[in-house]
Structures are given as structure tokens and as C-alpha cells.
Design a protein around this nucleic acid. Structure first.
Lengths: 160, 160
DNA sequence: TATGAAATGCCATAACC
DNA sequence: GGTTATGGCATTTCATA
């Protein structure tokens, strides 16, 4: 699961296309990248089996359904004890408000990204995860005013 | 692109599934949500036409291909002149290193997320966009040590 | 205006070269 | 990697409420 995979130019071309649209018929893709239909399908199957393609998903625009408030929070922990930070990470990972979370260098320890329906919901999250003895010393809230660069699936990073 | 869309329970169930896997045969989905195959396909077609489903994509795990350094940067601008900030936003949006960018409240003005192959590449980005008269007063770099919550497609937020 | 059922046509699959 | 035959799936049409 951990080893790297070597890809040739065809694979890269395929990934580039399928990251934009994974419903494109293989016939079309084949012509675009200069392969036969079956070659395209076999390579995509291999890329999925090898874990290069992790998931095939429909991207939903929640703003078309309900207005969401997007928030970033910088977390400073009281100390660096593994037991404490691990528990905090686990709690964060379980929180439905969380969109992403990173262990970062610098003056703060974690960066969180959240999406909530209201500030009241964010307050509940803070009480539940930040101000209730999970080892958090302080946190800084940054509310998103406007998205400058919209989420671009072809730029999306999947790690872990 | 404009008005909100009202969805019923079937639509929500469909979205929930298709956000996890958009290659699932409609027959399977139909049984899971309690609709006929054609009803499922029609509703999904409508959700795509109405822009609730924005894109259908394969999610790639770049860590399987090449090691990437993930970086968050907090930007403080010299002032809030529209002409300056707009130019900065445009430059950011054009930068290939950028994964996301947000206009935020608080002590800083923007939060950027980047993925680079090396610190040298990040340095080049900083020289190109941050330290070369785009109105940036100061910035703080946070390098991701470890991802706590991996990017989850079913949690992904598409705004704008 | 929505559904469910059946015929058509397209697409992926798999076994070949 | 390309070609071909098969099976599966989406699409379309139609009847119904």
C-alpha cells in the first residue's frame, strides 16, 4: 500500500482526463490520448486496483442546496504529549463539521477547515472539541469571507 | 447558477451515495434507495443539469505517484485597496501550486493551501507571488507534517 | 409531473491475436 | 497494445396515476 508506482506518459494523460471527468466514454478518451479503447480501460482498471485512483465520485455544490459557513481554525496545544494529541486527532477526525485537518509547523499545531450551517453550530463544535479538555490551549478562528480559488477537482490532493 | 434548489429525501439519498461512488450501477442504487432504475437515472440527470452535481471525477492519490510537500500560508496585505487585492487574487488563482485560497477574517487577510515538490519550488512561488510587489506585507508559512483528516470526497465542499 | 416497465443502442468486459 | 464477441448498463419510449 505504501510503495510508489511508476507511470508512463499515457497514464498521466489518462489521469489528467479522468480527474476532470470520469464518465467520459473510453472511446472518446482513447482518441484523445492516442490509444485503443481497451487499452484505456485496462490502464484505468490498473490505476484503480493499484490505488492511484482512490475513488470515483460526484462533486456536489452545497451552496446550491444550503448556505454553508466555511471556517479555518488554528489550534495551539498545551503540550505535545502523544496521548493527548492522538486523542485530539481522533476526536477531530470523528467530527462531521471537519473538512480537513493538518498537523503543521510554526507557532500553531493544527490547522482545521470546517463547514457549518451557522455560527451556533461552530460554537457547539468549539465547546465540544476545543474548550473541553482535549489539550487545546488556544485557537484562532478565521471565517471565510469569499473563496478566491474554488475547489478544483483536478487539483484535489488525496493523502494518507 | 442562481437560485437555490429544493430536493426531496430521494435526492438527498442519491447524492449521499453518488458522492461516495458515482460508478455504481443504477440498478444497485435503485434498490438501496427504494426507487426504480429509471427514476434513479432521471433524478441524477436532473441533479447534474441543475448544477447540484458539478463534476464527476476520479480522485487521485498523488502520494502514490510523487511525494508532495503540503503548505499553508497566512497572508497579510499592506492595505485593502480593491485594485491590489484583486490583482493578488488573480495571480493566486493562476498559480499551479495553489490548491485553495480563502479571504478570511482576523489578523490575516488570506489563507492559501499549496502543494509543491520541494521547498525550492515553494521559495520560487514566494518570490514570484508574495515578495514581488503584489501588495503582500507579510506571510506566515505552515508546513504540513502529517495529514490528520485525509481529504474525504463525501465531505468535499464546492463553493461558488 | 412523477413513476415503473420494456425495447433499443451504447459501452465495458474478457478472451483472443 | 490492438481486435472482436459477449454481457451489462443507460437511454428512450410508453403506459399509468
Amino acid at each position: 500500500m505504501t510503495n510508489f508506482v511508476t507511470l508512463d506518459d499515457f497514464d498521466y494523460k489518462l489521469l489528467e482526463r479522468v480527474r476532470r471527468n470520469n464518465l467520459e466514454p473510453a472511446r472518446v478518451t482513447a482518441e484523445a490520448v492516442g490509444l485503443s479503447e481497451s487499452a484505456v480501460l485496462r490502464r484505468l482498471r490498473r490505476l484503480r486496483a493499484e490505488g492511484v485512483i482512490v475513488a470515483d465520485v460526484a462533486m456536489v455544490d452545497p451552496s446550491r442546496i444550503e448556505p454553508k459557513i466555511q471556517i479555518h481554525a488554528l489550534i495551539t496545544m498545551k503540550n505535545q504529549e502523544r496521548a493527548v494529541t492522538d486523542a485530539f486527532k481522533a476526536a477531530i477526525a470523528r467530527s462531521p463539521e471537519i473538512q480537513g485537518a493538518w498537523d503543521v509547523t510554526g507557532e500553531t499545531d493544527f490547522l482545521l477547515t470546517l463547514a457549518v450551517d451557522s455560527m451556533a453550530e461552530y460554537e457547539r463544535f468549539c465547546q465540544r472539541e476545543l474548550t473541553t479538555d482535549h489539550g487545546v490551549q488556544s485557537f484562532r478562528t478565521m471565517i471565510v469571507i469569499r473563496e478566491v480559488v474554488g475547489f478544483d477537482p483536478s487539483r484535489a490532493q488525496l493523502t494518507r
